[in-house]
Design a protein around this nucleic acid. Structure first.
Length: 281
DNA sequence: CTCCTGTCCTGCCGGC
DNA sequence: TGCCGGCAGGACAGGA
């Protein structure tokens, strides 16, 4: 379940391995995922040089030397593996797309659940691309603040949890980091988004930035499916305060867990929410 | 507009 | 041991 820190980690791994490399081979091993691969994928990419790698929300953007942009979304279980030059590549189940480079290295896109996306766009039209056009601010960039968050939450009657999951409000968060940020800010996930004060929004925005930055430093979180491009695990899951910790004591907990039941688990919008009913108000 | 629900997809885990 | 139901969840469509 790659969210912003996991996607950022993958993106940095790709940048190290393939930036400046020429794509010499495009091997499409199945027709596509839920969304078919672009028909022009092979013709568009073969012979191109990868000029740059970047991330927008949970999308990885690989800029080519001719203005094309290859877009990856990892969905829930998507992995991008990099096979160094000279290392044997052993095909794995669900390896759907392989790019070969001029130094003999390979990029392998694997997605067991097929929720991921591979798309092509033009750099000049990227802002208006249907997958990217509606996205809210990047939480780690200056365009995101307590003030902007407050502004986008103030007319929403839905829960603050659901609002933060909405990529139009802030880009790149998913279930894990929303739960963690709400805990850090001491805000009850069930509160209507519009009930947050300016001060609440300020501490929430800060909590979002903090948790994302700490997670990136740890190389993301590996729960079930996510891997870094070198196959290594992320380690941030060991720092979770509430996610997947129902019944446990929250960090710094001073309440009687045998009485309170510890960290609570509820369902919001069909997704699990973990929170501390004592500390999140 | 916003809000809410259902759908996609398959591996894994717990229960029997 | 083996089977099966339920769960995980990001994005989006479609209906209220």
């Amino acid at each position: 379940m790659p969210e912003l820190p996991e996607v950022e980690t993958v993106c940095r791994g790709m940048e190290q391995a393939v930036k400046g490399r020429v794509i010499t081979r495009v091997d499409v091993r199945r027709e596509g995922l839920r969304v078919p691969f672009p028909p022009a994928l092979k013709d568009s990419l073969t012979g191109r040089t990868v000029k740059d790698l970047g991330r927008r929300a949970k999308y990885i953007l690989a800029d080519m030397d001719d203005g094309a942009v290859l877009i990856f979304h990892l969905g829930m279980a998507g992995r991008i593996g990099l096979v160094p030059p000279g290392r044997d590549y052993v095909p794995q189940k669900h390896d759907h797309l392989i790019l070969g480079f001029d130094d003999g290295s390979l990029l392998v896109f694997n997605d067991a659940r097929r929720f991921g996306v591979v798309a092509l766009a033009r750099r000049t039209d990227l802002q208006s691309h249907r997958m990217l056009s509606g996205l809210g601010p990047e939480p780690l960039e200056p365009g995101f603040s307590g003030a902007t968050l407050s502004q986008s939450l103030k007319n929403r009657k839905t829960s603050v949890k659901a609002a933060l999951m909405d990529q139009r409000v802030v880009a790149g968060l998913g279930n894990i980091y929303v739960c963690e940020a709400l805990f850090m800010a001491g805000i009850d996930p069930q509160r209507p988004a519009c009930s947050l004060s300016a001060a609440d929004a300020g501490s929430l925005a800060q909590a979002i930035r903090d948790v994302l930055e700490r997670a990136i430093l740890a190389g993301g979180s590996t729960l079930r499916d996510y891997r870094r491009t070198d196959g290594e695990l992320g380690y941030f899951q060991h720092q979770f305060a509430v996610y997947d910790r129902a019944g446990a004591a929250c960090p710094g907990c001073v309440c009687d867990v045998s009485r309170t039941g510890g960290i609570g688990k509820i369902t919001q919008g069909g997704r699990s929410t973990y929170y501390c009913p004592e500390r999140q108000r």
